[in-house]
Write a protein that binds this DNA or RNA. Structure first.
Lengths: 340, 340
DNA sequence: ACTGGCACTCGCTACAGTCGAGTGCCAGCC
DNA sequence: GGCTGGCACTCGACTGTAGCGAGTGCCAGT
């Protein structure tokens, strides 16, 4: 177990070199490129220990060493400092995000930006409805039996849904309905809406009852239960860098996983406040992503978290750099949202 | 130039076998698997002619023949009949699309369905705003200086955008604005809105003028000019079938092209009424897609076209099958929209 | 106009041999 | 005890050669 400082330095050097060159790294190359102050033979002994402990492995005899998932984990936890962003990167972030007119716009720009800066696949979750408050509910009559419900959340998110009413409804009643739902629901957290919606039905005057019932069903269905969470994706072409050496030769499982919104949400959605989460290879619960790593964090105005964002790439990725970028982007997005 | 019936039959056989097996097809295999009624030697002579004319080629001297883009073109134009869908497929389509509650829902289900049936990458364009009419414009006051503009199109599409007003505006004025824009714009084709919006500003009473000006800018910007067109994508994992033999070994360019919305819109958006368009390899103007084929068509309620949909895959694809599927799906979606 | 036969091409596979990067181990040194 | 230089060993990558077989092009014959 005893990993002295030099062994750790060796591991760090291996990870850095391997990430940079994509090739197994040998003892000679190591001492040449890093100031370890010892000979290759010594490094070999250290490597033997590191291998025994499961931090590195040899793809085959007579090859250099490659970090294992466990090795990356140790590297991330104890051996790397978050790389400060270059001024160029900071500028890129600002330039990219300034001028966004819309939540949609913000999300799209963000995901593209992340993909571009990290050269990985980027994922951005829209502000979670569950964590949003209702700012306004608008009912727009489309015909006498059809209503468009538009919900505007305080995060800027807008959801709409068509409602088919059981019977024609006069304009005045629509006004009443609008007033009622707004009185009750504006300002409430969406996660706690269900009982309130229920109450709305029960308290409503008889002639509004049928319409309100339908309306409440739709509200519950669409806004709370169903495709509640959305996300944006970019940079899938980045998966092909590294010439199929990453991902053990097949992009298939990765691409499949990326099409499953549920999977992605799990990956980046479970953000604890102000932590950056790093999932390395096997730590990932999704089988298809066993060859991939994910760096994610939460974002939101101020210190609250309304959604997650992150990047996905090969386990052989630049963790310090990506962590820094993900954090920085999340912070900027948060500021942007706060201005609203 | 003279391609007699048998030569055409040989070409058809080559295309069919190659699509099925993914391997260059030789003269012996051909006569064994098809009732051509002649010997391999004769087929060879025919092949020589077909090669000279540029319909097939040999990957290398002692290999079988493979269709060229030109060969596929001839096959699609003259040698194949559209395959009728199997009852199972029809049922799949119906089952998949029934129960869609929303335009978003319809589009998402459609794109997944297409990807699943054809086992290719599927693209569905949202009903084009340019081809939609305004059904309703809603202005929702968010604060005294902020307005949410919601536009509902007759195709079911809903777009919204936040407007920052130059000065606070009283609730009554919002009502006036709402009335004005609706009076002028409801029922008009979006493509022809700009002059009308212009007129709105000029005709409006002085105290509404500033607000109306800002509003009109946003209307023009967002609803007409900018990200006007949206689309949905699915089935990218299907690109990895055929083990990298298709696409000459690199998915890179394809994935890149798929991230460019503009490119995709060009591909599937330029739909002429009721035609199914097939673009084969080189015919494609996008360099990145020189190794791919696209089958696309327009869809819409009744005989009008409001958007395009299609699939993208290797030139070596099942054209008759995919054409049939794309058409069928487009027809079903059209019917679905017509019910609105 | 079609066919059978035949020589030829050339990619694929297997096999052997060489090279070299990299290791593990050991004896010696500080 | 920890570090080092030296050395034998392993094994993948690469090269060259040879045999095979699928497939072709051509030609003479029907």
């Amino acid at each position: 177990m005893g990993l002295d400082d030099r062994k750790l330095a060796v591991l760090r050097a291996i990870v850095e070199d391997y990430v940079a060159t994509q090739e197994p790294v040998g003892s000679r190359a190591l001492v040449e490129r890093h100031q370890l102050g010892v000979s290759p033979a010594t490094v070999r002994n250290d490597m033997a220990v590191l291998e025994e402990e499961g931090y590195i492995r040899q793809p085959h005899t007579s090859a250099g060493r490659v970090p294992t998932d466990r090795g990356y984990r140790l590297f991330v936890d104890r051996l790397s400092r978050v790389k400060p962003l270059s001024p160029a990167e900071r500028r890129a972030i600002e330039r990219f995000l300034v001028g966004a007119v819309d939540l949609d716009d913000v999300v799209h720009r963000t995901v593209r930006l992340l993909a571009q800066l990290t050269r990985q696949v980027a994922v951005v979750q829209y502000p979670s409805l569950a964590r949003s408050k209702v700012r306004h509910l608008e009912l727009v009559p489309i015909s006498t039996t059809r209503l468009m419900v538009v919900m505007i959340a305080d995060t800027g998110r807008v959801e709409q849904r068509l409602v088919e009413l059981p019977a024609p409804i006069p304009a005045d009643d629509v006004t009443d309905l609008r007033r009622l739902v707004n009185e009750k629901l504006v300002g409430t957290q969406l996660a706690e809406t269900p009982p309130l919606v229920q109450a709305l039905v029960e308290e409503s005057v008889p002639h509004l009852r049928p319409a309100m019932t339908t309306l409440s069903t739709v509200l519950l269905e669409t806004l709370v239960e169903r495709h509640e969470e959305r996300l944006a994706l970019a940079g899938q072409a980045n998966l092909t860098r590294g010439g199929l050496l990453d991902f053990q030769g097949s992009l298939r499982p990765i691409l499949e996983a990326l099409e499953e919104e549920v999977v992605l949400l799990k990956l980046i959605g479970e953000a604890e406040p102000s932590t950056t989460r790093v999932l390395i290879g096997d730590e990932n619960e999704v089988d298809n992503l066993r060859a991939a790593s994910v760096v994610s964090t939460g974002y939101g105005p101020g210190s609250t978290i309304v959604g997650g964002l992150g990047v996905l790439g090969p386990t052989r990725m630049d963790y310090p750099g990506n962590i820094a970028t993900v954090r920085a982007v999340a912070r900027y997005v948060g500021e942007l949202l706060a201005q609203n």
